[in-house]
Design a protein around this nucleic acid. Structure first.
Lengths: 208, 208
DNA sequence: CAGCATCCGCTTTGATACTG
DNA sequence: CAGTATCAAAGCGGATGCTG
């Protein structure tokens, strides 16, 4: 672990999580809480396997993650964040907010995993009608479908599908993200290729 | 600029500010708003001069900083953050909060610059008596003295001294920081080598 | 002196292949 | 599945030199 050797809290934090890939590993674990080595590799396209192994060891040494040998029938190593590691969520939120405008200029062929939407969506979306029955929105973009569940005043995002969703969105990540965050009107997005089925009210319920 | 090539806001942010030294350069500019190349080098002990030049060029290309040729009598290049660059303050705050516990285990011979205290102190300290006349606390630790000014409900930290401060602290950075944030009692800190002159009430006025 | 650019040895990274 | 081994390429840190 290379260190800046400075008596400064930010510099000390960067000593631990400032190396390449490190914060993205934390991002993966924040979204997919306990996950396998293979899952991490899948969520971090481009990472070298030796580098991933190195980072995981360093993160464990620094108390950010823990590893656990799951007994059969799982019979594999599971990685998860420690409570200390979970506190890095605020760092990733700040980074994500700052980086949001940069998505506009991201090339269309950039890698994408649909679960990367979970954190920003849970952060930005609100349930504006806590007293009404819950609604679900299915989102089809990227590699696998995800579901947005709004109810009781909170919004959750998880991988998977649901039977009879209130709405269903299909399209490229920029279109889907734009529509969900309200930066892009539904009509405009449909003109640009977004497919929308179901009740637009479900959308309005969660938009910021 | 090496990129992760991911359609993810956090990853895009790290593309821009994730390289070694980059966020520490931003830290320097957040504290010492317009500053010279030489000032940056002083605030970033250990940075290679070519690397600093590279980073400054990249940050300028990415709209984070701007450079300005100051006319005589200054006659030098001044670097400052753009509004977009200033928004990185939230990232450094999150990192600093997370890294705070790591200061305890930082070796005593780590580099230190007293202006590194400005950001965390302005963030943590409060003026608990907004209606009373302002107070000033002079802090002598590290390379140069700094002054904490509390009044009208806000707390400011700047380099320099003041005539007739309400209190004066002298000691190592951990002692000074501990006493100011209230994690360390004044009596205990004095026993450990801290020198304190003046009115303890000034301290209580700003402690979190 | 301020603001770099160049050179050099070392470390880190990335890509691939291989193993229990 | 969860890594380790190997190696080329890129990045980094330190020293030094150059230019206004």
């Amino acid at each position: 672990m290379r260190t800046y050797d400075q008596y400064c809290a930010a510099a000390r934090a960067l000593d631990v999580v400032g190396d390449r890939w490190t914060l993205l590993i934390v991002r993966e674990l924040l979204v997919q809480q306990p996950c396998r080595y293979t899952d991490l590799r899948y969520g971090l396209p481009g990472v070298a396997t030796n580098l991933l192994a190195d980072r995981l060891r360093e993160l464990e040494e620094n108390g950010v993650i823990s590893r656990e040998e799951a007994p059969p029938p799982i019979a594999t190593t599971l990685f998860r964040l420690t409570p200390r590691g979970e506190e890095l969520k605020s760092v990733l939120e700040a980074l994500g907010r700052w980086g949001r405008p940069l998505l506009e200029e991201t090339p269309g062929d950039a890698d994408f995993r649909s679960h990367w939407l979970a954190l920003p969506l849970e952060l930005q979306l609100k349930d504006h009608a806590p007293d009404r029955p819950p609604v679900t929105i299915e989102v089809h973009t990227g590699d696998r479908p995800i579901v947005i569940e709004a109810g009781d005043g909170s919004v959750r995002v998880r991988p998977g599908t649901v039977s009879g969703p209130d709405a269903k969105l299909t399209g490229t990540p920029p279109l889907v993200l734009g529509v969900l965050t309200g930066e892009l009107g539904l009509a405009r997005a449909r003109a640009d290729g977004l497919e929308f089925e179901g009740d637009p009210k479900a959308l309005r319920r969660v938009r910021p």
